[in-house]
Computed example of a mutant assay.
Amino acid sequence: MSLSPQQAQDIFSENFAPWIQALGLTITDISNSGATLMMPITPDLARVGGIVCGQALASMADTAMVFAAFGHLQAAHPVATTNLDTQFLRPATGEAVRCDAEIVRAGKALMFARATMVAMPSEKIVATATATFYIPPK
């Protein structure tokens, strides 16, 4: 049984730290291969010049890749980020940022993911990220 975007949103609302919830993330798609999240660009997330701060983008990428892992596992099974590498390519400006996360490889103990963040409505890639997650035994 796969997770629906609404089930994933409920998991987010009930289990993630308040400061992550403050990013205003919406899970728009989730499947066994990945997840897509949207983040509105608000004054709270911007630094000088109206550019989204890198910390918000890195947190969004990590969260999106966690949901990609949940989609792959078909449940909100705990995963632990063991490595997160983010590349900032251009300033994130506009109305929102979309993050498309996918599972690259899933083993028994480790899962590898990547994410691409796109400014909306320009559709320009603003950052990419990769992560490794440890999957504790059930």
Score class of each variant (00 low, 15 high):
residue 26 T to Q: 14
residue 22 A to C: 05
residue 94 G to D: 07
residue 4 S to I: 08
residue 17 A to G: 03
residue 55 Q to D: 04
residue 30 I to L: 08
residue 32 N to H: 08
residue 61 A to G: 06
residue 87 Q to F: 08
residue 86 T to L: 03
residue 31 S to R: 03
residue 40 P to F: 13
residue 41 I to K: 09
residue 37 L to N: 00
residue 108 K to V: 04
residue 56 A to I: 07
residue 13 S to A: 14
residue 122 S to C: 06
residue 70 F to M: 13
residue 65 M to P: 06
residue 11 I to H: 03
residue 86 T to W: 02
residue 105 R to T: 05
residue 24 G to H: 06
residue 92 A to L: 13
residue 23 L to D: 06
residue 35 A to D: 07
residue 138 K to M: 12
residue 119 A to K: 05
residue 15 N to C: 13
residue 121 P to H: 07
residue 12 F to R: 01
residue 60 M to E: 11
residue 26 T to E: 13
residue 22 A to Q: 08
residue 73 L to Q: 08
residue 127 A to G: 04
residue 99 C to Q: 09
residue 121 P to L: 06
residue 2 S to E: 15
residue 71 G to S: 10
residue 8 A to R: 01
residue 2 S to M: 15
residue 71 G to E: 07
residue 89 L to R: 01
residue 33 S to I: 10
residue 120 M to Q: 12
residue 77 H to R: 13
residue 107 G to E: 07
residue 52 V to N: 07
residue 28 T to V: 15
residue 79 V to C: 07
residue 106 A to S: 14
residue 93 T to I: 15
residue 107 G to A: 11
residue 116 T to L: 11
residue 101 A to S: 08
residue 82 T to K: 02
residue 99 C to I: 08
residue 100 D to E: 15
residue 131 A to S: 14
residue 136 P to C: 12
residue 84 L to Q: 00
residue 92 A to Q: 06
residue 90 R to L: 14
residue 1 M to Y: 10
residue 3 L to C: 03
residue 50 G to A: 12
residue 34 G to C: 09
residue 64 A to V: 10
residue 42 T to N: 03
residue 64 A to F: 10
residue 21 Q to C: 14
residue 125 I to N: 00
residue 80 A to R: 05
residue 87 Q to P: 02
residue 58 A to M: 12
residue 133 F to W: 13
residue 47 R to E: 14
residue 109 A to K: 15
residue 80 A to E: 07
residue 110 L to N: 03
residue 16 F to I: 06
residue 125 I to F: 00
residue 1 M to K: 02
